[in-house]
Each structure stands twice: as C-alpha cells, then as structure tokens.
Design a protein around this nucleic acid. Structure first.
Lengths: 331, 331
DNA sequence: AGCGTCTGAGAAAACGATTACTCAGAACAC
DNA sequence: GTGTTCTGAGTAATCGTTTTCTCAGACGCT
C-alpha cells in the first residue's frame, strides 16, 4: 500500500509537505498542494492509521462495550452514541460483552491496547474491570448501570422509580398479587427494579413476599421457567412486573402455555418499549427507557471528558415513561 | 502510560529482551524473564497497539460492517462472526452502515486506514465502495448480499428459493391473491425475494400482477404505508409475503388498523424468525435464515483468506427454512 | 589449546506518519 | 545597502514496538 514517501517522491516534495498539504495545516504553495493531491489520488493513498495514531498519541475512536447486542435497548444506545460521535468525526467500535465479565475484560484490554480515546460501557461486573481503565487514565462513561465509586461519569435511568410506578399501576388496575421477575442479584438494574417493585408493594399496603419474586438471567429461557414456577404455586400472582424485553418473551410464552390470558388473568408490564409491543395480544404495557438519549448523552459526556480530563464527574439520571396498553388491564 | 522502555529499565534489561520475554519468542533467561514480568506487572504495562501494529504491519482485528444494528438478523450474524474470531484471538469491531452508502464508505475508509486484517460486510450499494478495499488488497467477505464480480468470497442465502417456497405455501393454503412487500430495487435480497415470489406465482398458474407488489425501505413505516396502499385497492390481496422482520411490524400494524384478521382474512409469511414471532396472534409464519451460521462461515472464510490471499474465491449458499405457524393458515 | 558453533542479549534499524527545527530567500524598513 | 522579519519548504527527531544485526562468551570438538 502506498506510503507518504511514495506520494512525496511522485509529487517531487518532502513528506513534511505532503503531510501539511493533506492535513490542511500551515500554508502550502497552492501549486505544490495541487501536485500532492494529484499524486495522492493517483496512488490511492490512504494514511496509515496506526502510524498516525502512534505519532499523534491519540485516535479518534470510541469504544462502546455493551452487554447484549441482541437487546434493542442496547442497540438503541449504540445509535445514539454513534450519531453524536460521527458528527464530530469520531468513529465508534461496538463490542459485545454478552453479560460476561470475562469478555468484558478482554474488550477493555483491547480498548486499552488500541489506545482508543475513550470507552462507554454498560458494566457487567463491578469495579475490577473498569479499574484497569481508570488506572491508566482512560476516559470512561458508564451507561445503564452505575459504577460504585463516583469518580465516573454515568448516564442512568431512574429505574427504581419507574419500576415502582409500573407496579403501582398494576395495583391501581385492580391486580391484587403483583409478582416480579428480575435479573441476577448484583446487576444493579435488576436490583433497582426489584427495589422499586417493593416500594410499590409497601405503598399499596400489601404484604411483601419473597414467594412472588424470581431472579434469573436477563434472558427469555430463564424467565419462562421462572414464570412457570411462580404460576404453579398455590395462590399464584395475578400480575407480573418483568425487568426486560428478552424476559417478557419467555413470560408470555409461559403464560400462553399455561392457558392464562394476559391482561384478564395476569397483568403484565415489562421494561423496554420494543417495536413489537403493540402487536402481541393484548398489546404490551411497557416502561419505555430513553435508550437513544442515553447514548447521545453518554457520548457527549465522554467527548467532554476527553477534551478536559479534569472535569468533575457528573451523573445524569434520565427518567422512564410508563406506557399503558392492554396487557395491564382487566378490561 | 508505561512504555516498554520503562519496563526495560526497571527490569535492568534492554527493550528487545522485554519484547521477547513478553511475546514468548526465542529463549530468554528465566531469571531475566521473571524480572521482566514483575516489572511489567508493577507498572501496569500494556503494549501500545498502534506501535505494535505499525511494526508488525498487521492487526488482529476484523471489521464487520452491517446495514442495520437494530435488525436481529444482522446481530445474529455478528454473534457468529465474533464467536469464530474470538476463538482464534481476533477482535471484531462492529460498524453500522444503516443502509446508507455514504456511511458504508466512511466505515470502509476507517477500516482501510486502521489497517484491519479483513472486512466482512453486507454491501448496501454496489461495487464502488468495495472496490476501495479490493484495490488495496484487503481481504473481504460479503454476506447476505452478493458483490457483482465473482472475485470475492461470499456467504449468501438461497433467498429466491425460500421466497418461492413461502409464496407457494400461501397458495397451497388456499390464498388466491398473494401480494409481496419487498425492499428497494437494487438491493439484491429484495430483488431475489421478489423474483422467488414471481416464480411461485407462475408455478401456481396465477396471473402475475404489479398491482400486488410494493417496494419500500426495509423499515416498518414504509411497509405500513405499502400495506395500506395494497389493501385499499379493489380486489386486494388475501395474503402477503413480507421481505423482512422490520417490515412485518408495519404490515401487522396496518392490517390491525384496517380491521383485517391475520390468517383468516390475510395470510402472512415474513422473512426472519424473530424471537417474538410466536407471541403475536396468530403466531407468525416465517422464513428462518441461518444468520448465526452465515456469521461463522463468513469469519472462517475471511480468516482463510487472510492466511492465504491466493485462495480461489468461494461462494457459500446456505438455505433457509420455512416455519409454518398460524399466520399463514385460514383455520 | 585452538577453532568453529551456538546461545542469548544488547544496539540499532525499521514501520509510516507528524511536527519541532532549520534555513534559504523574499520582503521590508531604515 | 544592510539588517530584520517573515514565509514556506526541507531535514530530522519522534512516537513505541518488533526484529535484524552484531557480538561476547560458553561450549564442544579435534
């Protein structure tokens, strides 16, 4: 592949001049510049990124490490990040940690090695991995889930409040025994949603009962099994708050197989307003999280931190919105 | 951030020895190696990727450029690619071209600049962009959609046959006037699915009619409008073949709003077996494409080509599978 | 002992860009 | 006409690795 020296000798100038011309730095004689551009075009010259980054000690690349590429919530975040980054000339590379602390670590190491300008991640495990980044002074923004030390910029959703509101809505609709299916213990969103659920139970003056709560992976299969377990006890729940959109697939499958009619027999509210929510019967009531906005805000925060590493860390908390549809109504 | 020289001086050896020790090359005195490892650990040393890549003239990174991150078909491909790549120590960076030839070109340029080892892409526009890659001898594998010249490795699905089979199935179920909603002209999968549909129309001895065909973006909104258009004519179709899963969302919404009952009034088969297909009422009949496998095969092909650039180009065509559910049955 | 052969570590040359220096010549002021 | 400033291009240093040389010393063989 053509190098800058090839261009230089073809244009009959020094490499310095080529570099200056191509980057529009300083002033270069228009006639020389024209020769340079012609030569670059002719040779199909494309600057060697690694060499440039090595010299410049910076790369206009952001890493985005998300915990599930197949979850629309995270892909929407990705879009938000990308749109902001593109606008200022940064590229985004997307990595899928797949809820595995191990893969997360591997991608963090790649990000460090490649010396990307900054990292946005939805942390799976706590601290240990991100410490590698902060130890080396790499700008980081956490999304969706907080990091323990508040040295970091974070973009979160007030998911506890949202869960409370969703559960309260179910009680208000006349459901008596609202259950909750949430993610693994230690995953902050899962814990928060459970806490919000409990807040609502308390506010409704109901007796809180571990019997009505299940925790599983944030996946359909686990949620399906959990639903079967919940529903097959004596005095089963008559409504469910489900902590994400993958899970609700398992939940709806299970209810269908158990012959329970959603809405009439069992009220359901799930997190994330997926594109197909209106298509199921009855339409699914959801907690819509501002995923795209999380992405845009996170990208802006990261860019700000890259520009000024001494900025005080900020935490932005966005709020979610309950969308009432048929699945949470007995009518 | 610590450099190799820092490690070298702390360990009291030369940088060459540090490099050799850390990379396990050649033989290094165990005692020296131990000092090196200790120093590297102590300093939190992480080799500078750009510098390494510059020297080595290669990076263990693959670029995957897909046309829609929010489409589960493509994210499943991504998983396949990633699993294969990870296993052999390559990282994958995912880029979203968003069906825009412009973004595609930008990401291709980034891939070239960063000198990634190879590129897997689902081409949006034809030739022009990929020529940039091949001109520079960059290994490329096309997925989902072919590239015109057969100099390339490709992994495709026999989507024409699958479309034919799906449409034939609708006829077999007793639908008389099967319509088709497909993607933009020029997008190969869209054209092939339409061609397969026409094959089936011909085989069923029906008169083919442009009246029953609509083309729009591969998005829900366009498909919704197309459906309304199709259904509001005199003698509207009584079944629809829908070319992807985003579109079918719009189609189902439209049918619902028009008061048409899916299955009984209008049969529907759509491409891609999305996770929620069984949840809609009636369950959605689909053409399941082997997306994950497309990804794994593509990654293997790419790795093979990276290892040996003189390999003959191969085209792998996988087949799709029709899954019959309630939406294509009058019962 | 003397002479290859080997081993293993350091010195130094890449890799391909950017950029701090340097310096010739023009422009300008006196 | 001389000295000063300015302009713009080339020279060379630099980024942090890897890797080719180079070479000292150990080893083995006759």
């Amino acid at each position: 592949m053509a190098t800058i020296s090839d261009v230089a000798s073809m244009a009959g100038v020094s490499t310095a001049t080529v570099s200056r011309a191509l980057n529009g730095k300083s002033t270069v004689d228009p006639e020389l510049a024209a020769r340079v551009f012609a030569a670059a075009e002719e040779l199909g010259y494309s600057p060697n990124g690694p060499a440039r980054n090595l010299r410049r000690q910076e790369a206009a690349v952001l890493a985005l490490i998300i915990s599930d590429v197949e979850n629309p919530f995270f892909t929407a975040i990705a879009r938000g990040v990308e749109d902001v980054a593109q606008a200022v000339g940064y590229s985004v590379v997307l990595c899928n940690s797949d809820e595995s602390g191990d893969k997360e670590r591997r991608y963090i190491d790649v990000a460090i090695q490649e010396r990307v300008a900054g990292v946005i991640l939805s942390p799976t495990s706590t601290t240990t991995n991100t410490k590698r980044l902060t130890d080396r002074g790499m700008p980081v923004v956490a999304v969706d889930r907080p990091l323990p030390d508040d040295e970091h910029d974070m973009v979160l959703v007030d998911t506890r409040m949202a869960a409370k509101e969703a559960a309260a809505h179910l009680f208000a609709q006349g459901y008596e025994q609202v259950g909750c299916i949430t993610g693994p213990a230690g995953v902050r969103t899962a814990d928060d949603r459970l806490a919000g659920y409990r807040d609502a139970v308390r506010s409704a003056k109901k007796r809180s009962s571990a019997r009505l709560v299940r925790r599983t992976e944030y996946k359909a299969a686990g949620a399906k099994a959990a639903t079967v377990g919940l529903m097959s006890q004596d005095d089963p729940p008559d409504a469910l708050l489900v902590a994400n959109s993958s899970m609700v697939i398992g939940v709806l499958e299970a209810l269908d197989e158990l012959g329970k009619q959603v809405g009439r027999d069992v009220g359901v509210v799930a997190f994330d307003d997926v594109s197909w929510a209106k298509l199921v019967d009855p339409p699914l009531s959801v907690v819509a999280q501002p995923a795209y906005e999380i992405g845009t805000v996170a990208a802006q925060l990261l860019l700000a931190r890259i520009a000024d590493s001494d900025r005080a860390a900020t935490t932005t908390t966005l709020s979610a919105r309950l969308i009432e549809r048929g699945s949470s109504s007995r009518a």
